[in-house]
Design a protein around this nucleic acid. Structure first.
Lengths: 350, 350
DNA sequence: GATCCCTGGTAAAACATTTTACCAGACCAG
DNA sequence: CTGGTCTGGTAAAATGTTTTACCAGGGATC
């Protein structure tokens, strides 16, 4: 069905329909449709050839609104991103989106972007995307505890999946954040750190809690405490990370290491620590989380736990597509993480 | 037309159509449509009320595939992004996308994402998005000289706009890159720099050439040369910027300042310079371009020329929407840029 | 009393597909 | 000659809207 650059005919204005192709090749419209969709079946080779060249010559392209109406699907997937300031500029979401896009594209799905604020979710307006036949499936990113009502919409007609987050009973693909916490703790303890702080993300995000749990657990196993005074919320932003770092280091001047819930907070923390006269890593080691591209290009370059964001996006989309193809098993996939050591960590000053 | 959370009825399965609403309220389907679309016209108040409550009760949502088929438009805009590795993770594109999204959303348009590789463009497959009624309009970002063929498709039925790029005769909204080059040059010259290098972006991008021109021009006016040996291509990436910085500083050890075509290359350059034992800014000053969020969080924080990316996205989308509403004047808008001084520049070492 | 207009609505066409059910002719068996 | 099957198709229904043209009945006008 190779039909690239159809001629831009002189008339140019009215779109060419399947009807036109049928007329041009002297067959019924049904025949054209059959050739396009069934591929092999009944139609004789001469007829098929005639129709195909007509299609080529006229530059026919099936109207997907009509197709969608008939098939009751749109071949579009929606990505729901929390509506923050300039959400799409965040490399975290960007990596996930890239993975999703590439996978979707491979199967002929288009991607619709939706920034979903609180009200959007609370009023269930995302259901419109399904009910109005905008999309066949949805990928939720940045979901929080608020989203647990999603549970109620697990009917087979509106498939969705949580991207890099987890909720019991909901389809999801998520990085192993508990392991991430553990790896960070082991790395820091291994370097001899004993007075350690943490800058975590929002408390209503399950992965944030898992990360904290894994980190605290492992520290405890090594006899290192993580008191409340050594925990600060950094809101997942650079500014938040900076502010949190300042609070931590002021309240606990003897801290020699900080673990942050993502790389943006780490970047903010490093900058603020340096501004406050602490050298990184010689005075204070910093470990980030995610390993976004920029992590390698802050100074000092960031030691971080790599969550395979692109792959997480890819897999989520893969799973969603499987759902759309009728697979009916629940999907709860956990991808491994790994420690990436760079320049922002060093042995504890003795 | 306030109709939030329609009941999830027990039947649940077959979508409710305008037909169902008509039956439920004892009027014709035309009447329902009239109420929904015309708003005021002919229909009496009692009837309107009856229909509206039926809509509410049934949780009716118009099927947009059917609407689109009838109206021959989709209410979707496409963003075309060059298909690089993990394109969407690039904060440059992300900021533009955020601006576009917010503006589109305000007018009820949805956003479709498309990563357009070379072949996608060369084979004019993006035309399918129009011809198959996927989208009403398109925003091109990251366009290069290869895209000049776009010129041929300026018919009124397939509106598109170049986002932060320029081409004579094509609609576009672009930052003033020539001024950006000038501001960078004036800043560095003002600090006493005389031996200056530049890491530029791809040569087939018009804005890259404008930036170079503005920079070189202004240096020349101040009697500062910019020989070919002081120019390197950094391919708009961190790695490219790092490699280019190394070449520059090796070939011209006396360089005291470098201007880069975007912030990512600046980040790469700074890191490599430091790795090579040059201190930034005391040995070498670095000026970036764009002022992405991360620019403030590299160390030292980056002096850069702020191109208002979010605003550029917003305006582009605004202009495109005006086109869709029938406005027929060409749009060639240039937004001002400004110098943002941070820590990566200092007076030239004497 | 016929004509006209207004009010409040409806029937039907059109949009571009896919899919189901059917059909005409050729060929063959019995 | 009747009945059956296969081949290569076609007619028509269905999908859910919007919009155009029309219509019935009532009141006002001449």
């Amino acid at each position: 069905m190779a039909r690239t650059n159809g001629k831009q005919s002189a008339v140019e204005r009215k779109p060419v329909s399947i009807r036109d192709v049928a007329d041009a090749s002297g067959v019924s419209l049904t025949t054209v449709s059959l050739i396009l969709n069934n591929g092999d079946q009944r139609i004789s080779e001469p007829t098929r050839a005639r129709v195909l060249t007509a299609i080529e010559r006229l530059g026919y392209r099936p109207n997907r609104l009509a197709q969608g109406l008939q098939n009751r699907r749109s071949n579009i997937l929606a990505i729901l991103v929390p509506h923050l300031r300039h959400t799409f500029a965040d490399p975290y979401f960007g990596e996930l989106i890239s993975g999703i896009y590439d996978r979707a594209n491979r199967s002929g799905y288009k991607i619709l972007l939706e920034a979903a604020g609180r009200s959007f979710l609370r009023e269930k307006r995302y259901l419109d995307l399904f009910d109005r036949c905008f999309v066949d499936g949805m990928l939720f990113m940045g979901s929080t505890d608020e989203h647990r009502f999603l549970h109620r919409f697990r009917d087979r007609k509106r498939p969705f999946i949580l991207v890099n987050n987890t909720w019991p009973g909901l389809d999801h693909v998520v990085a192993d954040y508990r392991a991430a916490g553990r790896l960070a703790a082991e790395h820091l303890v291994g370097l001899g750190h004993r007075r350690i702080g943490m800058i975590h993300g929002a408390g209503d995000v399950e992965t944030a809690r898992l990360l904290i749990a894994g980190f605290a657990e492992t520290l405890a196993q090594h006899g290192v405490e993580l008191p409340a005074s050594c925990m600060e919320d950094g809101f997942y932003t650079e500014e938040g990370g900076a502010a949190a770092a300042e609070k931590l280091i002021t309240a606990n001047p003897s801290l020699t290491a900080i673990f942050t819930g993502n790389d943006k907070m780490a970047a903010g923390a490093i900058q603020r620590l340096q501004a406050l006269g602490r050298r990184v890593p010689s005075d204070v080691s910093v470990v980030g989380c995610d390993d976004i591209t920029q992590a390698a290009f802050v100074t000092p370059s960031l030691t971080t736990i790599r969550t395979p964001l692109y792959e997480l996006g890819r897999r989520s989309c893969q799973r969603l597509i499987e759902r759309l193809r009728g697979k009916d098993e629940p999907c709860q996939e956990v991808l491994p993480v790994e420690l990436t050591v760079r320049q922002s960590t060093a042995p504890a000053a003795s």
